[in-house]
Design a protein around this nucleic acid. Structure first.
Length: 804
RNA sequence: GCCGAGGUGGCGGAAUUGGUAGACGCGCUGGACUUAAAAUCCAGUUUGGUUUACUCCAAGUGCGGGUUCGAUUCCCGCCCUCGGCACCA
């Protein structure tokens, strides 16, 4: 046997097989007495890329953390699966001409092999593949539960349409006007589609109090949900019966209102067309703005357009007449789709007033006084302004005025306090082939009828041509489409759209712990025992998609009584993003890096250590492989240290070195600071090489390296004569007494500049330290340059003499 | 525009509550071993000066101020990079 070098090719494969043979990673979900620890990573979706570098960067450290928790005495559950429905798999199938069922199966198989080579402790017995009928059966079942609760509904509404993917998209999947998947520009279309009523859960979703999540992520969800408190104010309109209602968060400025603007698509416009002064002009304007995409509207920026309706609303407060305009800078789905214009204090209203030559009134002054010339709108912060020109509000602070005016408006019956949200219902239907069919049939007699639960799954049918055409390809399979109505038995047609894959992935963590149940989706006993997920690791890009959807579905399942837990993921950590030459890796840019060749050349342990050593786990960084030789050398050095270095001359010194390392490694790994954890092990290796280590030290340090280099550790552990797996060992503990050094090095400063240092017993008195400090030649030289004013001594660290 | 995170050697990065800036690693330079190379080992490596002396001095954590005996760390004002949201009333 070679004692010089760590030979991964032979050793890693051996232990992967041996671990599987011994069932080391099978978690007993039922009876294990140890405290449970559910350690989860976001499961991958199969595509042509297979597992790339980013997956390794996510999964390998997460697995190291799981192994550490196991050695800390937990019953760790680390499952893995594949989010195999959806666009990446389908697009790959279309590109290669291989049916998605076949290509997905092949990619999944390849990815399983990659995950095994990583040396992860996944419990493959509980694997989930979301495109398998035994999984999507329950995805459909969840749809039916929401349907029965009135939380799933079909409605005609203006939607985001991606011409590239030929399907509708949820708001969450539109990024800066482009499709999240294919980057095509998104258009608006009006269509009948399926939604989940996530807006029923806005307040619950805003409550993150039970969660140990990054602040950033919580903030992103809060911003996405976008809660704003305000008031709906209703105005009489001259000459007609209808009233106009405007939502505002700044009713304090209402004395400064000089006009009203309504969205082209707003209900007010639809109701009152007959009363408009120039309907032709308005219809023309509406037609033109309908043609614009959201992007075009945004691109126009400050350029405000609009048409006067000729109607005038009466400001309840002042009796002033407010002309009503139609303009596309107002969005129909925000608030009431009607906005009261206060050009003195809102940039958009100001721009509109300038374009239309409307009056501008100032009603708030900043604390620095009045600016009589109104050349720009002044958006005064809510905590820094005083009301003027506003009758009974004059002199009040803004916040106080806001409450006063809302009380006044409500008392008079002119307004009603409301809370407005940015979040819209989740659009879940897709006009694509590779997804779970929606279990609904349409009957001429009975209308929309849910499929009986006993009939699930509604199998995804085979179709010849699964390419997207703007209508679901399922439509072409007549045997699938034409069915009997479950209610009346008459002729009926199936819903042909499929579910958004985010529906599949919104409950997989729940299924893992219930995956042993074949005849039902959930088990309360298992859910209560194993949820919530203790540690969830994945990318931050899911903050307002998967992580929001999963919380929503979980809360519905909670309300339906399937779990006592209110949240799915207790602790959340985002790994950083790995870029290549500063850009996000993607196949289209051709800058992806495959992990396979590195595993081939250096072994999984060296590669995973390098990924962890690159920098902080949560930071990510730009990929280059230059430093990998460093961790490869370290693996060899560690190997040699264990197999060739002998007893220390100074036992106490070796003991102290070990215990300091145990402390550092334990602290770092528990905080996921893998980079400094590895450097501590490197330091230990360098030092121990010089001073020596005994058998006990070797065993301890093997345990320390085990989570981060599992194969290397297991092999060395057995070479020292052990028969059990090192991962069944307990994590080493350190002795506080032993890590305290007898002597300390103290820096000596004069006027804050280091002029020398001294090594002295740790328990030396202040007097003794100061005396010794003054005797240092260079220190004495600087002290002689003036009179000693002050002596500062921080025990064990620093001395500073202040000299004038 | 708004919200959030961050700027440290040639490079990745490290620095308990303010207490010796640059740990660990890469790269580079010199040396040992070798016929030679690789591998390995040893020494050096912030910049600029300076000394018989690894001696000492000065500057230095994006820029400019401030607080402090002492600031990468705290405060104020800028610049830049990245992430999110964006005509949300």
């Amino acid at each position: 046997m070679d004692n010089d070098r760590y030979n991964p090719a032979e050793i890693e494969n051996k232990w992967q097989q041996e671990w599987a043979r011994r069932g080391l990673h099978e978690t007993d979900l039922q009876d294990d007495k140890r405290p449970k620890y559910y350690n989860l990573v976001m499961f991958p979706y199969p595509s042509g890329d297979k597992l790339h570098l980013g997956h390794w960067y996510n999964y390998a450290p997460a697995d190291s953390f799981g192994r550490y928790m196991r050695m800390m005495g937990h019953n760790v559950f680390e499952p893995m699966g594949f989010d195999s429905f959806g666009l990446p798999a389908e697009n790959y199938a279309i590109k290669t001409g291989v049916h998605p069922a076949a290509s997905t199966a092949k990619n999944v198989e390849y990815m399983r092999m990659q995950l095994r080579k990583m040396g992860t402790m996944y419990d493959w017995d509980k694997e989930i593949v979301t495109s398998e009928p035994d999984y999507y059966k329950w995805t459909q079942w969840i749809f039916l539960q929401l349907y029965k609760k009135g939380l799933a509904y079909r409605k005609k509404a203006p939607l985001n349409w991606c011409g590239g993917c030929m399907t509708v998209l949820a708001n969450e999947q539109v990024q800066e006007g482009h499709c999240e998947r294919c980057n095509s520009e998104v258009e608006q279309k009006e269509m009948a589609q399926w939604f989940f009523k996530i807006t029923d859960y806005t307040e619950q979703l805003l409550d993150h109090s039970e969660l140990d999540w990054p602040e950033k992520t919580i903030l992103m969800q809060k911003n996405w949900i976008g809660r704003s408190e305000g008031i709906d104010i209703s105005y009489e309109v001259e000459g007609i019966e209808d009233k106009i209602t405007c939502f505002t968060t700044r009713p304090d400025t209402n004395f400064g209102a000089t006009f009203i603007v309504v969205a082209p698509e707003s209900e007010f416009v639809k109701r009152n067309k007959a009363n408009f002064i120039d309907l032709v002009k308005i219809e023309d304007y509406i037609a033109r703005s309908n043609k614009k995409t959201e992007l075009e509207r945004i691109a126009e920026g400050g350029k405000k357009t609009g048409v006067d309706t000729g109607l005038k609303a009466i400001n309840n407060l002042t009796g002033a007449k407010l002309p009503i305009f139609v303009s596309d800078f107002v969005l129909a789905n925000v608030g009431t789709g009607c906005v009261v214009g206060v050009p003195g204090h809102d940039i958009r209203d100001f721009e509109f007033a300038l374009a239309k030559g409307l009056e501008i009134i100032r009603v708030v002054i900043g604390k620095d006084g009045d600016k009589s010339k109104i050349t720009r709108p002044e958006q005064v912060q809510e905590d820094a302004g005083i009301m003027i020109n506003s009758e009974f509000l004059d002199g009040m602070e803004i916040m106080k005025a806001k409450e006063a005016i809302m009380d006044h408006l409500e008392k008079k019956g002119w307004g009603k306090r409301v809370v407005n949200y940015r979040l819209r219902d989740w659009l879940i239907s897709r006009q694509r082939y590779w997804g779970a069919p929606i279990p609904i049939v349409f009957c001429d007699e009975c209308g929309e009828v849910p499929v009986e639960e006993a009939e699930l799954p509604v199998m995804l049918p085979d179709v010849k041509d699964y390419k997207p055409k703007g209508k679901s390809p399922l439509e072409t399979n007549e045997a699938f489409v034409n069915v009997k109505c479950p209610k009346c038995g008459g002729e009926a047609k199936r819903e042909v759209d499929t579910l958004d894959t985010f529906v599949c992935s919104s409950w997989y963590y729940f299924r893992y712990v219930c995956s042993e149940m074949k005849d039902k989706p959930f088990s309360n006993a298992m859910a209560d025992k194993w949820l919530p997920v203790d540690m969830y690791i994945g990318g931050p890009e899911h903050a307002c998609m998967h992580l929001l959807y999963a919380r929503f579905i979980h809360k519905v399942m909670h309300d339906l009584g399937y779990t006592k837990h209110k949240e799915p993921f207790k602790k959340l950590v985002h790994q950083g993003l790995i870029t290549k030459d500063g850009a996000k890796m993607s196949k289209s840019k051709g800058n992806t890096v495959s992990p396979d060749e590195f595993v081939e050349n250096y072994g999984a342990d060296v590669f995973r250590m390098y990924l962890m050593f690159m920098g902080p786990f949560t930071d990510g960084g730009d990929w280059n492989d230059k430093g990998i030789t460093g961790t490869a050398r370290f693996a060899d050095k560690f190997w040699k240290l264990i197999l060739t270095v002998n007893e220390p001359e100074n036992e106490a010194q070796a003991e102290t070195l070990l215990h300091k390392t145990i402390k550092k490694v334990s602290d770092d790994i528990s905080k996921m600071q893998f980079n400094t954890c590895i450097s501590a092990l490197m330091e230990y290796t360098n030092n121990a090489q010089k001073i020596g280590l005994n058998e006990g030290h070797k065993k301890s340090v093997i345990k320390l390296i085990a989570p981060i280099a599992p194969h290397l550790a297991e092999e060395l552990w057995h070479r020292l004569g052990e028969k059990e797996c090192v991962f069944n060992e307990e994590w080493p503990t350190y002795d506080k007494e032993l890590i305290v050094e007898d002597t300390v090095e103290i820096a000596v400063q004069v006027n804050g500049k280091v002029r020398g240092s001294l090594v002295i017993e740790a328990d030396a008195s202040k007097e003794k330290v100061l005396k010794a400090a003054k005797e240092i030649l260079n220190v004495a030289k600087h002290l002689s340059e003036g009179a000693l004013k002050k002596e500062i001594y921080v025990a064990g660290k620093i001395v500073n003499f202040v000299v004038l």
